[in-house]
Simulated scan of single mutants.
Amino acid sequence: FICNDFSGKVRSIMNEIGTRLKIAEPSDAVQLQGFESVPKAGDLLAVIDNEKDLKKIANERQKTRREIEQKKISFSLDEMSALIKEGSIKTLPIIIKGDVDGSIDALSENLVKLNNDEVEIKVIHKAVGMVTESDVLLAEASNAIIVGFNVQVSSNAKLQASQAGVDIRIYNVIYNVVDEIKLALEGLLEPDKVESILGKAIVQQQFKIPNIGFIAGSKVTEGIIQRNINARLYRDDELIIEGKIESLKRFKDDAKEVKEGLECGIGIVGAKKYKEGDLIEAYEIKEIKRTLE
């Protein structure tokens, strides 16, 4: 017989209660053994008497299927490459292998629900059966991870994945897959940036130091001033310049930080001159990891 594009030979026929049968009549619900490959729901099975004709038909169908799959894969890779180059969408490409079509469809639907305007799961290939070398090659070419559900990984695929650095993850609970992929997607989200003011200082006078340039003789009025952090220079409530504090001195010595109430010399990258009464505001920006709602 032939089913879809794979040939097979009937090894046994059983009814719904496990009794072996010699023949199956129209409308009988039976279990067949003898498939070369796992069939999909909806595949048609046809009995062919001549084995020569059977092999010829199977080979032609398999050739056609490979050509179609190659076209599909090329399109998927091109589409994914375009999205990444645009930079408008961050994509996590995934290959799904499962034990049955129902598992694959349920897994795909649950993963796609995680998509939002910033990040996207792209299922570039999904099929029934164990993880094979061809899956690993596709994953390597598209920087994808392979998600297997209730399937095994062939020994050659394991070796290929180890050499290529392809991540293969096998699960038996759908929610475990969704939770882990969700964490991966959250890592692709742009983090929220939160600014906090560390300290403020009032400029009292300007000094010129050889090999450094002008620095602001200042008094810290709030918090703490630290070297190598961001700062803004305000004059009459107007922002003059923004840059890092490249020089921080306490008397003639370099200092890492100066606390409230103490005097110091402050040099900001890009600042040419300081005036009495200028306000220096030191701040830092922290990145906070976002989560998918």
Score class of each variant (00 low, 15 high):
Ile224Arg: 04
Arg232Gln: 05
Asn228Phe: 06
Arg250Ile: 09
Glu242Leu: 11
Ile241Leu: 11
Gly223Pro: 04
Lys252Glu: 09
Ile225Cys: 03
Ile224Lys: 08
Ile225Asn: 01
Arg235His: 11
Asn230Trp: 10
Leu233His: 01
Glu246Thr: 14
Ala231Asn: 05
Ile224Glu: 14
Ser247Glu: 06
Ile240Pro: 06
Ile225Tyr: 03
Arg250Asn: 12
Ala255Arg: 07
Asp253Lys: 10
Tyr234Cys: 00
Arg232Val: 03
Glu242Thr: 15
Lys252Ser: 09
Asn230Lys: 15
Arg227Asn: 09
Tyr234Lys: 01
Ser247Phe: 04
Asn228Arg: 08
Glu238Phe: 13
Arg232Trp: 00
Ile229Ala: 02
Gly223Cys: 09
Asn228Cys: 07
Glu238Thr: 14
Glu242Lys: 15
Leu248Met: 08
Asp236Cys: 03
Asp254Ala: 07
Arg235Cys: 08
Glu238Met: 15
Gly223Ile: 09
Gly223Met: 04
Asn230Thr: 14
Ile225Met: 07
Arg250Met: 13
Arg250Lys: 14
Ile240Tyr: 09
Asp237His: 05
Ile224Phe: 01
Phe251Val: 09
Ile224Met: 06
Ile245Leu: 08
Glu246Leu: 09
Glu238Gln: 14
Arg227Glu: 12
Asp254Arg: 12
Arg227Asp: 08
Leu248Cys: 07
Asp237Phe: 01
Ala255Ser: 14
Asp236Tyr: 01
Asn230Val: 07
Asp253Asn: 14
Glu246Met: 05
Ile229Met: 05
Glu238Asn: 14
Ile229Gly: 02
Arg232Asp: 02
Gly223Gln: 08
Glu242Ile: 04
Tyr234Ile: 00
Leu233Ile: 06
Asn230Asp: 15
Phe251Asp: 13
Ile229Lys: 02
Leu248Lys: 04
Lys249Trp: 08
Leu233Trp: 00
Lys244Ala: 15
Ile240Gly: 04
Leu239Met: 07
Ile240Glu: 06
Ile245Val: 11
Arg227Gln: 12
Ile224Ala: 01
Ile225Ser: 06
Ile225Asp: 03
Ile225Ala: 02
Ser247Asn: 11
Ile229Cys: 01
Arg232Tyr: 04
Lys244Val: 13
Glu246His: 07
Lys249Ala: 09
Ala255Phe: 05
Ser247Met: 08
Glu242Gly: 12
Arg235Asn: 08
Glu246Pro: 00
Asp253Gly: 02
Asp236Arg: 06
Glu222Asp: 15
Asn230Ser: 15
Ile224Val: 14
Ile229Pro: 00
Phe251Gln: 13
Asp236Trp: 01
Glu246Asp: 14
Leu239Asn: 05
Arg235Ala: 13
Gly243His: 03
Tyr234Asn: 00
Lys244Gln: 15
Ile245Glu: 03
Arg250Thr: 08
Leu233Met: 10
Arg227Gly: 12
Asn230Ile: 08
Lys244His: 14
Arg227Ser: 07
Lys244Tyr: 14
Lys252Gln: 11
Asn230Gln: 15
Asp254Lys: 12
Leu248Val: 05
Ile240Trp: 04
Leu239His: 04
Leu248Pro: 02
Tyr234Val: 00
Glu238Ala: 15
Arg232Leu: 04
Phe251Leu: 13
Asp236His: 11
Lys244Trp: 11
Ile224Ser: 03
Arg250Phe: 10
Lys252Thr: 09
Asp253Trp: 05
Asp253Phe: 03
Phe251Ala: 15
Lys244Pro: 11
Leu239Gly: 10
Ile224Leu: 10
Lys244Ile: 15
